[in-house]
């Protein structure tokens, strides 16, 4: 079974976000970029399926600028067999990415597509669901466990989903779309020799036009604002004073 795994280049989660002075967007100048953490979990799951003998090939894919090849190289170093880069300098949002991925699903015919449930930059949580709609494939979102029965040839997968207040397990018929939640696995670190070996693995570059899709966003970004700066706190000397302040100053009681 072939597994297609989607990865996104985002600001490294350790970076303190700055907004451009004109509020037009987040400032990406000289900012360290990395693979979206939920996508790392997706890659890890795909690689583990290959190590278990369930998956026969892991194909990593991204939609984004040329620099996003760094994240594909990371996926290859972590164990993906080959990579596909749909190169676009446009601001790509969920629907654009989902359209490109849908074409690749058509071309590659994977048994399983694994995506992060959301990217930490735009927090949309849409691409996986949109891909399912576009391809007409069943979806198991917010996965905390993925079990492919047998060796994947009998065509079933059980996905345990993290839902409000509990877990839900669904059984889906392959091929399926899975999106990963935080607790699905703990991603490994890339080994240095594998980083060097990743350079020799194939990486195909396609344009959205090659796939016959438009990826540019239809929404216009009007304004980005940082959260309001935190005001200094005060120490209170008693519970009574605290209750009084909460009632009369903060007016939350």
């Amino acid at each position: 079974m072939k597994v297609l795994v989607a990865v996104k280049r985002v600001i490294d989660y350790n970076v303190k976000i700055r907004v451009k002075p004109d509020n037009s967007d987040v400032d990406l100048t000289n900012v360290k970029m990395a693979m979206n953490p939920f996508c790392e979990i997706a890659v890890e799951e795909a690689v583990r399926l290959k190590e278990k003998g369930v998956a026969t090939e892991v194909v990593a894919v991204t939609v984004g600028p040329k620099a996003a090849q760094e994240q594909l190289r990371t996926a290859l170093a972590l164990g993906a067999d080959r990579a596909i880069h749909v190169e676009s300098d446009e601001r790509v949002e969920s629907l654009g990415a989902a359209k490109a991925l849908a074409k690749l699903v058509e071309e590659e015919q994977p048994g399983l597509v694994i995506l992060g449930k959301q990217a930490i930059d735009t927090d949309n949580n849409q691409t996986g669901q949109m891909l399912a709609a576009l391809t007409g494939l069943p979806q198991g979102t917010f996965a905390s466990e993925v079990v492919v029965s047998g060796d994947g040839t009998d065509g079933k997968v059980q996905v345990t989903r993290e839902i409000d207040g509990g877990l839900q397990t669904v059984e889906l018929t392959l091929p399926v779309i899975v999106t990963t939640d935080l607790r699905l696995n703990e991603p490994r670190y890339a080994k240095l020799p594998d980083i060097m070996k990743a350079k020799k693995k194939p990486l195909d570059v396609k344009s959205p036009a090659d796939l016959g899709v438009e990826v540019a966003s239809k929404t216009q970004l009007l304004k980005v604002e940082p959260p309001a700066e935190r005001q200094g706190g005060v120490k209170v000397s008693s519970v009574d004073e605290l209750v009084d302040k909460l009632k009369n100053e903060a007016k939350v009681l």
Partner: peptide, 19 residues
């Protein structure tokens, strides 16, 4: 060590990394 850092100074001939 598990990630190959102990061989950073070595060529691939001896399972290092050629960095």
């Amino acid at each position: 060590g598990e990630l190959g850092f102990w061989g950073m100074n070595l060529p691939s001939e001896y399972d290092g990394v050629d960095i």
